[in-house]
Amino acid sequence: MHVHFPRWSTALARSAVYGGPVVLAACLAALMVYVRTPDFEESQDPVIQPVQFDHRHHVADDHIDCRFCHQTVDRAASAGYPATEVCMGCHSQVWNGAPILAQVRESYFTDKSVPWKRVHRLPQFVYFNHAIHVNKGVGCVECHGRVDRMPLVEQVAPLTMSWCLGCHRHPLGHLRPKAEVTDMAWRPKGDAAAEQKALAARYQVHTRVDCTTCHR
């Protein structure tokens, strides 16, 4: 019989059959890993906003507390975005003609919201409650990072379920006195471990890992 295939084709066929699935699996795995990296997710890029609100100026320079604008963080699930009248409280007098604030003024006088872009976005099937976290001594910086150093707010934490569970399983190390919740630069003094235990006892920190804590 006439030989149709050269000798080396056997080796090629064998390596294809054995190596093929491995290569395929590796490609798939690599893709799956890549789409979960922040680089791909673009989640940790600063988000361009319609008005260039600089937290560095308002927080670090002017020492405005987080709660001045995010008014419901300690009593509701959503921290709240400031109503335009909050901005205009100062900016009707300070920099009240600045072009950079034109959209804020326009919003105030036309009664249309400023179209801010959401930075920290959880899926719709996750029900997160700010008030309980803030009242149990979890500082703003734990999840939102050094917002006081951000020209534009970016997401610094992955906000994945596994990341949340990390703290829920081991809360000690993430607590601070309630008075210091908005202090981005706060560091524990003295025996940090003992202080964490004391805070957990004082604030009755009983973290929950039941599914319906967040998913209902």
Binding site: Y81, A83, K117
Partner: peptide, 17 residues
């Protein structure tokens, strides 16, 4: 990113959510 539309004048006694 989604858009967020806060109030222009927050109604009294209303806590969003």
């Amino acid at each position: 990113p989604d858009e967020v539309a806060p109030y222009v004048h927050l109604p009294e006694a209303l806590t969003p959510g």
